[in-house]
């Protein structure tokens, strides 16, 4: 319930400040350009790739997620509202959950906007909608997970730039872990790294039209653990004054 109140403030903040629109426009411009490029390449040679836009977003979120979350706690710290939040009869986890849901809802809106590409494909060909849906569900969960990673760093530091930078580095590592096999000759080590990677639960399953329960569990687990850690960080700040 209190999460819902925090969520509403958070989503209102996204929708009333220009920042979110700038990010949204940038994402749409990027996906738009790549969508047209793919359309030109596949013209008369191959069927439409239903997972194209989710695939682009899977990389773009490495950079966009920290931008979306960097101000989340840093701004509250700077304005002092964090002190009010933490003295309101609300648990840290509720605050964290509400803020996450706000950012995730914003991301969901962005995803819905990219649905235009599917509509365009529908009007010119017959794309595999089931495949597309799978990729979209995948990137939706994936995006949620990247947002929570960004949130951890936003809670860790009051400096927005540092928060964004650390978030990007962390997500980049999680993204690249997929390629661990190129780095480690021991396949078991490589598998562990790939299991920890974001790509490893998206590119070969959701993005290719296969929904696997363990991938859902992975992203849900990342979201749960990261939100929990964020709440712990907030709580630890009480102890350090």
């Amino acid at each position: 319930m209190t999460s819902w109140i925090v969520f509403r403030r958070e989503i209102a903040q996204f929708l009333t400040t220009p920042f979110a629109y700038v990010i949204g426009a940038a994402v749409l411009l990027l996906t738009g350009i790549l969508f047209n490029r793919d359309l030109n390449i596949s013209f008369s040679t191959k069927p439409a790739d239903p997972a194209l836009v989710p695939g682009i977003l899977s990389f773009a979120m490495v950079f966009f997620a920290p931008l979306l979350t960097m101000r989340m706690f840093a701004e509250e710290q700077r304005e002092g509202t964090m002190e009010l939040l933490l003295t309101a009869p609300v648990r840290e986890l509720s605050i964290v959950l509400g803020k996450f849901l706000g950012a995730w809802a914003y991301f969901t809106l962005l995803l819905l906007l990219t649905g235009v590409y599917q509509v365009i494909l529908l009007s010119i060909t017959a794309p595999d909608l089931g495949h597309a849906l799978s990729a979209y569900i995948g990137i939706w969960l994936y995006g949620g997970a990247t947002l929570t990673v960004g949130m951890v760093f936003s809670a860790l530091t009051e400096n927005q730039i540092v928060a964004a930078f650390l978030g990007m580095v962390a997500l980049m590592l999680l993204w690249l872990a997929d390629q661990a096999g190129q780095l480690f000759s021991n396949i078991d080590v490589a598998i562990i790294f790939r299991t920890m990677s974001l790509q490893g639960h998206f590119s070969t399953s959701f993005a290719s039209g296969l929904m696997r329960a363990e991938d859902v569990a992975f992203f849900a687990g990342i979201i749960a653990v990261m939100l929990f850690i964020t709440a712990q960080i907030l709580e630890s700040q009480r102890w350090h004054g």
Binding site: D128, L129, G130, H131, L133, S134, S208, G209, L210, M211, R212, A213, E214
Partner: peptide, 10 residues
Amino acid sequence: AAWTFDATQA
């Protein structure tokens, strides 16, 4: 458990 759902048309 390997619960999977095949979303592809084919």
